[in-house]
Amino acid sequence: MKEQTLHAAEAGSPPGGLREGVRRAFLRHEWLRAYTLVSPTLILLIVAMAAPIGVLVGLSLWTQSGMEFDRTLTLANYETFFGKKIYPLVLWRSIQISALVAFATVLLAYPLAYFIAFHVQRHKMVWLILITLPFWTSYLLRVFAWKLILGYNGVVNSGLTTLGLIEQPLEFILYNVTAVVITLAHAWAAFAILPIYVSLEKIDRSLIDAAHDLGEGPVMTFLRVTLPLSMPGVIAATLLVFIPTVGDYVTPKLVGGTTGIMIGNLIQSAFGRGANWPMGAAIAVISMLMVTLAVCVFLGGVKGLKKLLA
């Protein structure tokens, strides 16, 4: 209070007083500097994130009647969602697929991140840039590439046929969940490698020496020291892959077939061909809540696991 009156007094003083007051307030209050620093981002987040989500929630409470919105607030769309089996089923499957994708991606990314962090001595930057190399082409192009690789007459099938290992092309590798998982895992690999790499790179090497010194071989040292200390990276990687893939609709549409359909496809069709925006909004809101719930369950599980191991 005292400082405020002080600044107010200064504001009324001769030219330069206001500027001086602001300057002093800046030097004195750490939080003021901090908020000034984040304010562009904060404004963008409010305008571009919070507002649309508010609109989405509002929209989900309306209903579609013909070409018009019926603006009476109702939970009818949510009743429809849980009334029809297809919606919860597809949502549940999307979460499962994404969990599987996240798991597979982290599992494949970890050794690579470990290799770069611990065994690459020079030119680490080159390795890290190479990892982002797939991102230099369009996402769509990469999905199509997988279609070519996994397709009926694709690289895998024709290769195996030529080698004489199979007589008929394998059909179970495209247009199903497997294809979706493979494609997504590849597409999101860099998002898993980088956070894991950072957390591994941060580990003090003397801790690993210490574990060896205290009698633990390479495997137990990894399990008792390296892995727990890299958990922040693993968690970040899992979330970075899991959360965006739940809503993905391009990959399931192109390589998922009928069994690989995901919640994003349902949202897209509600907004598109289905022309039922309130229903689409409701699906989006529910899937958002479910992803949040899944993340909470995951983080709770990690915490429990930590306690169990300690």
Binding site: S206, L207, D209, A210, D213, L214, E216, V225, L229
Partner: peptide
């Protein structure tokens, strides 16, 4: 290897496991 030697070490930065 270090984990089979009958020696133990106190490290310069102590290397206390932070977790």
């Amino acid at each position: 290897p270090p984990y089979q030697r009958p020696v133990n070490m106190v490290f310069q930065n102590y290397a206390i496991f932070p977790h």
